[in-house]
Design a protein around this nucleic acid. Structure first.
Lengths: 189, 189
DNA sequence: TCCAATTTTCAGTAATTTCTGAAAGTTTGA
DNA sequence: TCAAACTTTCAGAAATTACTGAAAATTGGA
């Protein structure tokens, strides 16, 4: 690996972190490299920069594309494929949230839904099913909320986040208002 | 493994999912087993139910304790250690969020903070540093917001989540109000 | 169509992670 | 203090995952 020190430490960090996430070192490193690069890179650029094999690079890029974290593009007069990450960090964040949702949460929800349909035989199973239901309700609520949040425009989202826990006050205020006027701003349960 | 079918499929699912998260199969399975169990279990109960070795169980329980996802307790007149998960699914969710924050996000923030202090030499490093700063700002904002959210009481949190994206309307409404009255409910940037 | 440039696949190897059994360590109460 | 009950550690085995180089496949232009 032959990179300026600032970039190198960023790339190495993402490589290490990869294992905490579900991705391998090379995938993490390549993503980091593309993220900070000021121009799209082709596979050989990446091999050169990271110091991994050409085939490994190919695999890693395929995985990053499956995650929708890199864009493929062609440069005029060059047959090679060039890769880059989206510029907008919020868009990246949303993509990541969507993909993790799809890969990690959906399958669990499906399994739990199936479990809800079973008829428990015996006390142990009855209790287990009740617990699974608690988990199901929680995950579903959080999931829907995340989807709502993801679909907000960045402006609103930033406003909301900066408001932070003070949103409580706004809610309380709105609820007193609605009690006075008889209108309700929130969804019913 | 010798468990009622409903419980078995739950336990196996968490085992598989473990690898998508940063935990191994046994850890996932044991957590799932404890989560649905109607009483605390000791290490031998777990070995019996899951079918792994005693030492593996010991390691896995240690990891689950490090994640603060299981409670250790003693039963009167029994020297063995019994394990269970917290009852409250919201508490579990919060613990999980805190631990992931600590393990996955903090180290990255630290690295980025360090990178911000470097003086870039050359255009590539200058651009890279700007990108890292964008990432830093985003992660910090989301992190603070998460912390705010975590510290809300469950009631408010559920209310907020059920409101979903309609919170936008509440925000807009409150802002028109504050424009009228000259008061501001939100933090300043 | 053919050739050269480029990308992908794949089988074998290397590295890492997980798991086990045996041994060592710890704790409790007699 | 000792012994029994129980837990942890750890070195090596097993399983899994990551990586490589060679070969096959694909692509675009002549």
């Amino acid at each position: 690996m032959n990179l300026p020190p600032l970039i190198q430490s960023f790339v190495l960090h993402f490589g290490e972190m990869g294992s905490h996430w579900g991705i391998n070192r090379t995938v993490g490193q390549i993503y980091a490299l593309l993220y900070v690069s000021d121009k799209p890179l082709n596979a050989d650029d990446i091999v050169e920069a990271i110091g991994c094999s050409r085939s490994n690079t190919s695999m890693a890029l395929k995985e990053l594309q499956a995650w929708r974290l890199v864009k493929l593009q062609h440069l005029p007069g060059d047959r090679r494929e060039y890769f880059s990450t989206p510029d907008d960090v919020w868009a990246i964040f949303k993509t990541l949230a969507e993909e993790r949702q799809k890969r990690e949460v959906e399958p669990t929800l499906t399994m739990l839904r199936g479990a809800m349909l079973e008829t428990p035989s015996g006390e142990a199973e009855r209790h287990a099913q009740a617990r699974m239901n608690e988990m199901y309700q929680l995950i579903e609520l959080v999931t829907k909320w995340f989807a709502d949040i993801r679909d907000m425009d960045v402006e609103t989202l930033q406003k909301l986040m900066k408001l932070g826990s003070q949103v409580q006050k706004v809610l309380q205020f709105t609820q007193s208002l609605s009690r006075l006027t008889g209108r309700d701003s929130g969804k019913e349960e």
